[in-house]
Nucleic acid binder design. Structure first.
Lengths: 225, 225
DNA sequence: GGATTTATTAATGCATACGTAAATGAATGC
DNA sequence: GCATTCATTTACGTATGCATTAATAAATCC
């Protein structure tokens, strides 16, 4: 969840954040429609900031403003998921590549190291939720280290979109143990400045993740999430 | 320019389009600030739709809403340009890869073929403006053929952002004659279903374009455009 | 009874009104 | 003369009001 720390504490932004939270928590399920008035009452403000927030979320692909129907919470079909994963694959791999070229020392790479050991710990204690958290952190830190702010933004948006789907499939899929060795390999490649390796390994990692998720959605007949 | 054809003919959207046009034409130059009231008067509507449009453009990275300063037209520094080009490189290459895997016939690839011959014609008659147009068309058609709607959207946004810079440097740079053989190679790779080649060639092509543009901005001391 | 037309409702898109708080300039103190 | 305080302006953020128009219900006709 990107909280946009530097932004002003305006109602419009509160609305955007709260709506996001409501969407991710599932309180506003995919496919549901909500009139502006209803949301305004729920968040205790007028329609104006709600509208502005909805517009922002629409630009980010989370909702759709349907005249007379209100804001429609968008779900992700399997095809949507494939699209998003493909983008994540490319842009994160780019980030890995660039991060490797920056010659980061152990200190700068500490967040990655930390995330990896957290994942291992979580895996040891069978805490999948914690694992997912650390995994998120790894990916977002990786992108940060890549140093392309636009990539960071786009990946943030896309990660938001798949978050719900991921949490649904989290308990279905096989223990992500291979995932960890992948992550460590990426980290090593970055630390040793091998940009092409970092890119290739991460690319393969994400491609694999995409296959697994899509297969799960397929077998479980989850059309939209 | 993406005109978003299916969208309702609301003032808010008119505002977004017109503001975009004003920005690209340079009438609202990078770095300038414009009060909401001023823009409202200019487009002959109230602040509300202006505000909504500005919010949308902000989400797309074209402007910034500064309290008390109005909407600030964002320029692109050399670093910004590098960021955008890197993203275009990755996502368009992905599109080329995916397009090659779809087994398109000559009919589906006609727009690409057309764009290429238009570029050649334009080059023959030294019409750089026409060349740039056809080049745009090639890239946007390529992305369309890739079939990932989100990629299409993101690339559209990024292309918007570099458009101004490109038109500034259009007359400075060497005749883009190599560009054409690159394009044809990409087309051939797609037509023959060689996804990896399509990706690699396009990647190299974009990487080269990035270098050229950045060098130009460097030598001409163009800090922001 | 079913289909078509008309009336009613109500949600949106937009305009407008207003309080607040930032920025500018005036006024005061030293 | 310079700094500090106070007053004034004004742009924004938000609330509210209103006309439009899509959607629903009612009513009429065949």
């Amino acid at each position: 969840m990107q909280t946009t720390p530097g932004k002003p504490a305006t109602n419009s932004h509160r609305a955007a954040e709260e709506l996001r939270a409501l969407i991710f928590s599932g309180e506003l399920p995919a496919g549901s429609n909500h009139l502006e008035t209803e949301l305004a009452a729920r968040l205790q403000m007028s329609r104006t900031p709600i509208r502005e927030a909805a517009l922002t979320l629409e630009a980010q692909g989370l909702v759709e403003l349907k005249p007379r129907k209100g804001v429609r919470i968008l779900g992700l079909s399997a095809e949507d998921m494939a699209e998003v994963y493909d983008i994540l694959t490319e842009l994160e791999s780019l980030a890995a590549h660039q991060a490797a070229m920056k010659g980061y020392g152990p200190l700068a790479l500490a967040p990655l190291t930390q995330a990896i050991s957290d994942m291992e710990a979580a895996l040891g204690s069978d805490d999948l939720r914690a694992w997912a958290d650390a995994d998120d952190r790894f990916h977002s830190e990786l992108v940060k280290l890549g140093g392309n702010s636009r990539v960071e933004m786009i990946v943030g948006m896309m990660a938001d979109q798949v978050r719900r789907a991921r949490s649904m499939t989290l308990f279905m899929r096989p223990k992500p143990s291979k995932s960890n060795s992948d992550h460590r390999q990426v980290l090593d490649a970055i630390a040793s400045g091998d940009a092409d390796a970092a890119r290739a390994i991460h690319h393969a990692h994400r491609t694999e993740a995409k296959k697994i998720i899509l297969a799960l959605l397929e077998t479980h007949q989850l059309r939209t999430v």
